[in-house]
Design a protein around this nucleic acid. Structure first.
Lengths: 324, 324
DNA sequence: ACGCTGCGCTTACGCGCTTAAGTAGAATCA
DNA sequence: TGATTCTACTTAAGCGCGTAAGCGCAGCGT
């Protein structure tokens, strides 16, 4: 553990292989337009391997004028578990284009702006959502194009449609909306609430009442009690985590699920099937495709090309379980 | 969105301030041992601010021979939620020492080793657990000292003690251990299982039977059924997520909790209190202290000093809820 | 025999920054 | 007054790499 290694430079590899540093660079980067016989290439590669040579990132970036880093900046210290399936395809896809995904988690734009991650010169900065003022100022400091993963009008507007339709099919005539209490998700929350309301209108159902349901058992109980007082028999939750709070509240209130009230979440959280009752939820489809689209946009940005808008948002499907 | 910025260099700042690039460097880095009057300093700083100058990381790293990056490499694409409270103090503490925390998530040592994150030259590489062979080979490629956040004998060995004692206090005379089915957690799983077994022995209870309980409802049912067949009335789970699977299985088997069987988890997962029944769990204490210790070790490593061993592991306390 | 082309390299420069080693001028001291 | 010390800077040399330009040589055509 520990102990800084002495750097092996390309000059040492060159000496070992009996060529110049330029040749080493040409060989190891497979530069097109160079005529270097296989025998020499082999010699260089062998020397590099033998000495354990790894190009020194800063020097390479300095010479090239561009790095191969993609920085995913995220305000929360952890990543929402529902994004996990997107991340591996994203990292793999970027690697296929010679880009490396790196994260900055839990950044606070207000304090971090005075101490930017100066030793990082990403080719592209990635942000999950459209940044606000302070975030934008911070993210710009990296001096790289900014790519927003989720579009302004998030695909999130479709899942509520499926939630409401599903409840209607099950015979519910009055649904309520359980929103998230997290202010950072306010825009998404509003979009989903409105999508649910619109679908109710289309189906000739009364406008859904809504309440924020915090992830706290006692507070959730009050919020859900208020929701039920409106006569709702079906509850659409902002996401599965909110739905868990709703289910906890219903259990505390002694309301049988789904006999008396039905609950639908969004996300297909890993624990959704393990909850009792198992949570009916809406899963977003086709993460690999979305990841591929994101990769495409990031690669374009890294080449200073125009960043295309996100491709058609992923579709969603409902997973019926026992909570409805 | 998009559009690569033209870099503002220190030379431009120098020209604008009417000094040389060296002076700019001295001023902006507050180099001790330089005699530069306040007036000149002001001029330089003003010019830098006006032009929006940010030092170009690779050039700085190249000149200095060291970067200010700490790379936290993690095999999973997401960070266990229970570590969230550690992360902000960690990042803040490092920043106070001029170090920047950056993550590489979901790395696969077997494939990534062929494409290391070459544009990254961290001062220190951080890994949550003691790396295995492949991981170690990969992590070494960064050419930086490696710091392991969790010690070989993880603090994880204490929580099971609390689990078993709690169950014993509640009158349970036969407990079982529900392990994780995740092979990557095998070493932790073994440590916890053994700690539980030892505590049982100390309390004069029979050795706990154990089974891996996967996060799949049907499979969990079979595993838990087997566990119950041994006559156990209390179940210690590897962590809360495993405990959720156990609770789901018990619900499916129609076994009342806690009337007939009690369950204890570890981690105080955000959803532990929202599950029905609310999950009794063991929470690790004192994350800020641990983070401070980790910061100390990382800073030492970045200075190529010897890395001190982790300080005394955090202690834990039990949070009684309704599942016991 | 002479120029020409293509091969297989090498030389040399620059990327933006830090920093050791100056240096010109003013202030201080013997 | 000349020698010395400070002040307030500047000059210049890299850090390790990529890459444009160049160069000697062999082979070819005429």
């Amino acid at each position: 553990m520990g102990g800084r290694q002495r750097r092996v430079t390309s000059a040492e590899v060159a000496r070992a292989a009996g060529v110049s540093a330029a040749t080493v660079s040409y060989v190891l980067n497979d530069k097109p337009g160079q005529t270097i016989p296989a025998e020499t290439r082999e010699r260089v590669r062998a020397a590099a391997a033998r000495l354990g040579y790894t190009p020194y990132a800063p020097a390479r970036a300095l010479a090239r004028g561009a790095s191969d880093l993609v920085l995913f900046a995220h305000r929360e210290p952890i990543i929402p578990p529902s994004y996990a399936p997107y991340l591996e395809p994203l990292a793999d896809g970027l690697r296929a284009h010679g880009l490396n995904l790196v994260w900055q988690l839990g950044y606070d734009p207000s304090t971090a702006i005075r101490h930017p991650a100066t030793e990082l010169a990403p080719a592209v900065v990635l942000h999950l959502t459209e940044p606000d003022r302070a975030e934008d100022a911070y993210l710009r400091r990296f001096g790289a194009p900014l790519v927003v993963a989720l579009s302004d009008a998030p695909p999130a507007e479709r899942p509520p449609v499926l939630q409401v339709r599903h409840l209607a099919e099950r015979g519910h005539r009055a649904v309520a909306y359980a929103g998230t209490a997290d202010p950072r998700l306010a825009t998404f929350d509003a979009a989903r609430r409105q999508a649910a309301a619109q679908t109710c209108a289309e189906l000739g159902m009364p406008e859904p009442q809504s309440r924020a349901v915090p992830p706290d058992r006692a507070a959730a109980r009050e919020a859900v009690r208020a929701l039920l007082a409106t006569g709702a028999t079906g509850i659409c939750a902002y996401n599965d985590e909110t739905a868990f709070a709703v289910l906890a509240a219903l259990a505390d209130l002694g309301v049988p699920v789904p006999a008396q009230v039905a609950v639908v979440g969004i996300d297909d959280h890993p624990l959704a099937a393990l909850y009792t009752p198992a949570l009916t939820t809406v899963a977003l489809d086709d993460p690999p495709t979305s990841a591929a689209d994101l990769v495409r946009r990031i690669v374009a940005a890294s080449r200073a090309e125009d960043v295309p808008p996100p491709a058609t948002p992923p579709t969603a499907h409902l997973i019926p379980r026992t909570s409805t």
